[in-house]
């Protein structure tokens, strides 16, 4: 199962070669540790370590910037708010901790293939068998979801073209209803195909 739309950046660094489960476990630990970061110095230290890890993974400043950019405005507003209300130390700690956690989580995504993460999910879901969750089905569902994204995006393109050809402008109703009906019909065929392969047995 290969996907072209992942955020994964191929590489051969130590971080790329670490098992996905170990990276995810470290991320969870980092989340817990972050609760205890209370001074600007400790947060600054954590940020330096994070940046060093990006360098170790061979990811340049441009990749780093792309992870921060969607959050930028929010962080600026947040920093200004805390600066006015609770002083600069608090502003540095709050913004810094968010920055560190977002960057670390993004680092796992950037250095781990989607397929490896799917395997971890299936492995972690194994004990859930007792409460009626079938880990193989979880894996199947993830695969079906990944496969369905380009299919539905394709259907959306078809509907959009049909809409333009009939001069319907951009009414959300005239777009969404046919898209969803086509999607439901596609799901019917997909369901039949799964049943024919014995998924219901």
């Amino acid at each position: 199962m290969r996907t072209t739309l992942g955020l994964y950046r191929p590489g051969t660094s130590v971080l790329h070669r670490l098992p996905a489960g170990a990276k995810l476990a470290t991320l969870v630990v980092a989340g817990v540790v972050s609760i205890f970061l209370r001074t600007p110095w400790s947060v600054g230290g954590a940020l330096v370590v994070t940046l060093a890890l990006y360098a170790a993974a061979g990811l340049g400043p441009l990749v780093l910037w792309r992870q921060v950019r969607p959050l930028l405005w929010l962080l600026v507003v947040l920093a200004a708010f805390h600066l006015l209300v609770s002083g600069w130390q608090r502003a540095v700690v709050v913004v810094g901790v968010i920055l560190v956690l977002v960057l670390l989580a993004a680092l796992v995504t950037l250095t781990t293939r989607t397929t490896e993460l799917v395997d971890v999910v299936v492995r972690v879901a194994r004990p859930l068998r007792r409460i009626g969750v079938d880990p193989e089905r979880v894996g199947l569902l993830l695969g079906l979801g990944i496969r369905s994204v380009p299919v539905v995006v394709g259907l959306a393109g078809e509907v959009r073209e049909a809409q333009l050809a009939r001069g319907l402008g951009s009414s959300p109703r005239a777009f969404a209803v046919p898209l969803l009906v086509r999607t439901l019909r596609h799901a019917d065929r997909l369901g039949d195909a799964l049943a024919a392969r014995g998924v219901d047995d």
Binding site: L144, G145, V151, L155, L190, G191, L194
Partner: peptide
């Protein structure tokens, strides 16, 4: 727990894709 049929699985997978596709639309 109620067991999902293959039709349920298909609906879940395709509608997950619908939510994703709606994010692509500007």
């Amino acid at each position: 727990m109620q067991r999902s049929t293959s039709r349920d699985l298909a609906l879940i997978a395709t509608f997950a894709a619908v939510v994703a596709a709606l994010g692509v639309i500007p």
